[in-house]
Amino acid sequence: MNLARRLLIGVPYLWLFALFLVPFLIVLKISMSDYAISIPPYTPTLDLSEGWAGFRVFWAALDFENYVFLTSDDLYWKAYLSSLQIAALATFFTLLIGFPIAYAMANAPDEWRPSLMMLVILPFWTSFLIRVYAWIGILSNEGFLNQILMWTGLVSEPLVILNTNTAVYIGIVYTYLPFMILPIYSTLEKLDGSLLEAAQDLGCTKIGAFWSVTVHLAKPGVIAGCFLVFIPALGEFVIPSLLGGSKTLMIGKVLWEEFFSNRDWPVASAVAIILLLILIIPIVLFQRNEQKQREADQ
């Protein structure tokens, strides 16, 4: 192996090793430590000056107490469950809104498509925080939506939407919509229009042909889109903390508060590890779906 190749592999490898893998192992280690009033606020810390004996004392002090604590305290498992529920429902709503848009884009005349793509991608490049912030002004009691609803006489009292779970759903659907539209559009775009004609010639109704051809062929895109929304939504912090209320329980927010407000690093680390374990299932399924699609493309 020559030097150039060694450098090419070695530099990014070491970088990721030091700044991704090692930090992750530290989280794992701290999740098994105990909270202490000290700097840093946990115990044990590894004392290298005592050599092997020091390491053994350190190793013996690690335990799974924090994980036991997480299962015994209502707050945490409720937060996990409600994050799962919010992420799943929000993903479903995003699909409901995203599919017709992707379908319309795929049906649009060829010369429109680049501009339509641009219009979908542009919000994705615009600051996430700003897009969430935009909804505060719309959903608040004196906000834009309530002004319109009151003006048209649909409601006589302003609707309370901001600081509820509804606002969190709206926020997730709004910010992650491009992630749903793009993969669905890319599968629908490849769809051969003559298949629909064939299905209709063979006696399918229009809706029947739509179901058995369009929806069936779009499935990999739909699955990819759903994972691309579900996975980040599950650990979301910004949306629940800006649009959600005190009753909105999401695990990303719990982790943040555990770390910054309670300063309980070991529990925050244990919360992070469990969240990762929950995420492994959808991530593996997502990878499999991608793999299948790649094989189908070849």
Partner: peptide, 10 residues
């Protein structure tokens, strides 16, 4: 695919 809170914390 790592949640940002975990990347930040670690």
């Amino acid at each position: 695919v790592m949640p940002e809170v975990i990347t930040g914390l670690s």
